[in-house]
Simulated assay, not measured.
Amino acid sequence: MVAQYSHGFANVSTKQGNGLKTMYEIDSVQKSLTAGILAQQLNANKVQFTTPLAHFYPRFKPEPQLTVAHALHMTSGLSTKATLPGKTDQAVLAANLRKLTYQPKNFGKFQYTPVNYVLLAGISEKLTHRSYRQLFTRTYIKPLGLKQTRFADALGQTPLAAQGYYAKDYHQKQLTVAKPNWDLIRGELGTGQVFMSVLDLYHAEQALVNGKITGASHDLLYVKKGVYSGGFYVKQPYYQANGTGYGYNGSIAISHNGQNAVLYLSNIQTNNRNQLLTAERKLMVKYGQ
């Protein structure tokens, strides 16, 4: 580790400070980890990048051109208006399949819509007959020895989990406590259900991009052409992912070999996260490539 900085409170009311072991909701950064879980099935030849989504979801039989690769790159033209709540993974998948829309004009074009990764999480479940939570544990938590990683609804009373807050900007002293809607968070299947510490997140992402987890599927998973691939933005000379929601905000920029990275996780959600993204980008350009 070259440098680390912790600031503020994980919990304002108890004066528990933020630190390297503090866990934060990683929100949409989780999509990159979902892509890694699917990579296990790609490496086992249980599915191909060219496999039609209709193979798993009959709802898409009228659109045989939609493939696993289109979902990974978010070029499918599929979208939903909002996160759809659910008490089980099956309920979440069913709700999304009912409500999603296909826009032919957007097919083949990048459009950031989380439902793509909800469907990919469902495909991994269908192929393995295991829950996403079981797959996440088998892929990341156990083999990498992650100690500060939990699903949001399994946090319990651990003081290591930061309380989320809303604020207009990062300098505002008046904070609003974020109160989680567990059904909504469960609805973020594969796209925003996990709490992690900064170091746990780095070790998981490093194992992804250096090929330890993605293996033979690595180069097809992270296509350098385009905008988004495998849960990362790939336009820069490094991979980058962001997450915002439920009172949290975070991001990671990581070199293609996984050696160098700049990460931040915050328990304040604001409308001006570009301040931190700009700082992350400057640090990565100067030190991380």
Rank of each mutant, 00 (worst) to 15 (best):
Q16C: 00
L208R: 07
D219Q: 14
H218Y: 03
P114S: 15
P64D: 00
Y24C: 11
Q157D: 12
D219G: 01
L78A: 07
H171V: 07
A152V: 00
T137W: 04
L66H: 03
Y102F: 15
N106E: 08
K15D: 12
Y238T: 11
L33D: 13
N210K: 12
L78D: 05
L283D: 10
K31P: 01
A44R: 15
T83R: 00
K224E: 02
Q111R: 11
S79Y: 12
P114N: 10
E125F: 00
T88P: 05
H171F: 11
V12R: 13
H256A: 05
P237H: 01
A69N: 06
V285A: 15
L276Q: 12
I123P: 02
T80F: 10
S255L: 08
V227A: 15
F136Y: 11
G226I: 09
Q30M: 11
V262Q: 09
P159E: 10
L160W: 13
G19R: 13
S6V: 05
F107A: 04
S79M: 10
L201K: 01
P143A: 01
H203N: 09
S76D: 06
L189C: 10
Y170I: 08
Y170L: 15
L277P: 06
F136A: 01
E280M: 14
N116K: 03
A261N: 13
S255I: 07
Y166E: 01
V47S: 00
Q40F: 00
R281H: 13
T244Y: 08
L199V: 01
H256F: 08
L160E: 09
Q174I: 14
G247W: 05
F110C: 08
L208E: 03
T50D: 14
A39M: 02
G226P: 10
Q240C: 10
F110I: 03
Q41V: 02
F136Q: 01
Q111S: 07
Q275P: 04
N45E: 14
P104S: 13
P159H: 09
R130Q: 15
Y170M: 13
Q111M: 03
N181C: 03
S76P: 06
R130Y: 04
F232C: 10
V177S: 07
Y233E: 15
K61I: 11
A95G: 14
Y264S: 09
F56H: 07
N267C: 13
K46R: 08
A207Y: 03
A10I: 13
L220K: 15
Q275I: 09
F110A: 08
L208Q: 07
L66G: 05
L33A: 14
K286M: 03
R186S: 02
V12I: 13
G164L: 08
G230H: 12
L42V: 09
G190H: 03
A216D: 02
V2D: 09
N106L: 14
E188G: 01
F195C: 07
K81A: 15
I26E: 07
E25L: 11
